[in-house]
C-alpha cells in the first residue's frame, strides 16, 4: 500500500518537474528541473525492483549527461534578454511534432503485449538476473548496440577535431 502511494507521489513529482523544465524561463533552472525528473524516475525504478536501472539512470543521466548540459549552458550564459525568440510557425511545428511523438509512444505501449510479470519475484531487476538475460538471450542486440555506441564515440572525436588529416 505504501509502495503504491510512493509510486503515485513520485510520478506526480516527475510530471511536475518535467513540466517545470518546459515552463521555466531560465535554461539553467530547466536543466536542474530535468535532473529532479531523473531522480523521480530513478525512484520509480527502485519501487519496481529495478535497482540497477535506477542507479545507472542516476549515474549516466543525472550524473554525467546533465552535468554536460549544465556545463554548456553555463558557458553560453543564456538569459532572457539576449535569447532570440523563435518564430510562431516554429513553435507551432514543435508542438505538432512533439504531439506526434507522444502519439507514437502511446500507441506502441498500447499495442505491446503485456507479458505477465510475477510481482512477488523481487529478483526481476537484480543485477545478476539482468546480466544473465543481457549476455544470454539478448547477446546479439546488446553487442550491436555496443558497436553503435563505439561508432558514435569515434564520430564525436572526429567531429570535434579542428583539422582532420
Amino acid at each position: 500500500m505504501m509502495q503504491k502511494y510512493l509510486f503515485i507521489i513520485l510520478g506526480l513529482f516527475a510530471v511536475l518537474s518535467a513540466l517545470m523544465v518546459v515552463f521555466e524561463k531560465n535554461p539553467v533552472h530547466s536543466v536542474l528541473y530535468l535532473v529532479l525528473t531523473f531522480f523521480a524516475i530513478a525512484g520509480e525504478f527502485v519501487l519496481l525492483n529495478a535497482q540497477f536501472i535506477a542507479i545507472v539512470n542516476v549515474i549516466v543521466y543525472a550524473g554525467a549527461i546533465m552535468v554536460l548540459f549544465l556545463f554548456v549552458i553555463m558557458l553560453l550564459n543564456l538569459n532572457k534578454e539576449t535569447e532570440p525568440h523563435k518564430a510562431l510557425w516554429m513553435k507551432f511545428g514543435a508542438v505538432v511534432t512533439g504531439g506526434l511523438l507522444l502519439l507514437v509512444l502511446v500507441s506502441t505501449l498500447k499495442v505491446a503485449d503485456n507479458a505477465e510479470v510475477n510481482p512477488m519475484n523481487t529478483n526481476i531487476g537484480a543485477i545478476r538476473q539482468l546480466g544473465t538475460v543481457l549476455f544470454g538471450q539478448f547477446l546479439l542486440p546488446f553487442e550491436v548496440s555496443a558497436v553503435l555506441f563505439l561508432a558514435a564515440m569515434v564520430g564525436t572525436v572526429m567531429l570535434s577535431k579542428k583539422d582532420i588529416k
Binding site: 540497477f52 542507479i55 542516476v58 549515474i59 543525472a62 550524473g63 554525467a64 552535468v67
Partner: peptide, 8 residues
Amino acid sequence: LYLMAVTS
C-alpha cells in the same frame, strides 16, 4: 554503483 552515483 551507489557510491559512483553519489560521487557523480
